[in-house]
Design a protein around this nucleic acid. Structure first.
Length: 301
DNA sequence: GCACCACCTAA
DNA sequence: TAGGTGGTG
């Protein structure tokens, strides 16, 4: 993992991340939005997206980044997009209805500066197709295997070849389902295989979906095998910047029951409540609620 | 529309 | 048991 350490750039500040704590950085990178960031020693996170590789860590001034020297020129701009540094996330969170929602206010206070990443659309779809009834650690394991076994090296000239990009959908279409199962995908292998074949047969479909209005984009995603409402909303929230997407998983169901009294409500009802109660940035509220509830569960354990 | 269950595998 | 989906009754 550290064979390339000598050729990494010096740490540089990432714009618009002033005051972002190590805990919030960890929650952002490793809290269920993305599955390719791995904690190193000393609070450093190392990760890859598209054909980029970076290390991130919290400093007293904000987040600092480093990249393999050969890739660093491209990383700077790519990281700004990925981390959505042009958005003032604190100001955005301040527009959420926390003044009339004490629980939401507590969530905002617990994770100041929490943000939504803008990940590559296709990669986000792949990650969340792996996510059904799996914990983050296991999803990360599957995704790592997919990358090392079926994705191209990001640094082709390097002997280490330590970093691989995720396989593209056309590449996945060529991988036999049995080999996908060998990446610990289980029954998800069938979904990924079928989705890959569909996407390979329909060039441009994914790009059109990413560009479509939220409701249409979600409806299109839901036609893919293995993609239901929850996965579609995750893909749109974490891979397309659609902050109105409000994914409802078991954690949100739990939160809404415990904190909002919505006991025994179904996913569809909770989704409707979330959109109307939290408004056009419901997805951002969801991420705060989600982070808060998981932290509370860890404390209780 | 809603409740149930199979689908894989690893911790 | 786990951060779902799809098929069935």
């Amino acid at each position: 993992m550290n064979t390339l350490s000598d050729s990494w750039t010096a740490w540089q500040p990432l714009p618009s991340t002033r005051g972002l704590s190590a805990a919030v950085l960890a929650e952002t990178l490793d809290g269920g939005q993305a599955f390719r960031w791995h904690a190193q020693t000393d609070g450093v996170y190392q990760g890859a997206w598209s054909n980029h590789v970076a290390r991130l860590r919290a400093t007293r001034d904000g987040v600092a980044w480093s990249a393999p020297a050969a890739l660093a020129p491209a990383t700077s701009a790519a990281l700004a997009d990925y981390f959505v540094t042009r958005t003032d996330w604190r100001a955005l969170a301040d527009t959420l209805p926390w003044r009339s929602d004490a629980h939401l206010a507590a969530c905002l206070a617990a994770f100041p500066g929490l943000r939504l990443l803008r990940q590559p659309f296709g990669e986000t779809l792949l990650g969340f197709l792996c996510s059904a009834t799996k914990q983050i650690v296991q999803i990360k394991q599957m995704v790592a295997l997919l990358a090392t076994r079926h994705g191209a090296p990001i640094l082709p000239s390097s002997a280490a070849a330590a970093f691989h990009r995720l396989p593209t959908w056309p590449e996945l279409a060529a991988v036999p389902e049995t080999e996908l199962r060998a990446c610990l995908l289980g029954f998800r292998a069938r979904y990924i295989s079928a989705t890959a074949k569909f996407l390979a047969a329909h060039p441009g479909w994914l790009e059109e979906t990413e560009a479509a209005p939220y409701a249409l984009a979600k409806a299109r995603l839901c036609t893919l095998p293995g993609v239901g409402e929850k996965v579609a909303d995750c893909v749109l929230l974490f891979g397309a910047g659609r902050l109105e997407a409000f994914p409802v998983d078991v954690w949100i169901l739990k939160t809404m029951a415990a904190r909002y009294g919505l006991v025994d409500w179904g996913s569809a009802q909770v989704a409707h409540f979330g959109r109307t109660h939290f408004g056009p940035l419901a997805g951002l509220a969801q991420q705060y609620l989600f982070a808060y509830e998981r932290a509370a569960a860890r404390r209780a354990a």
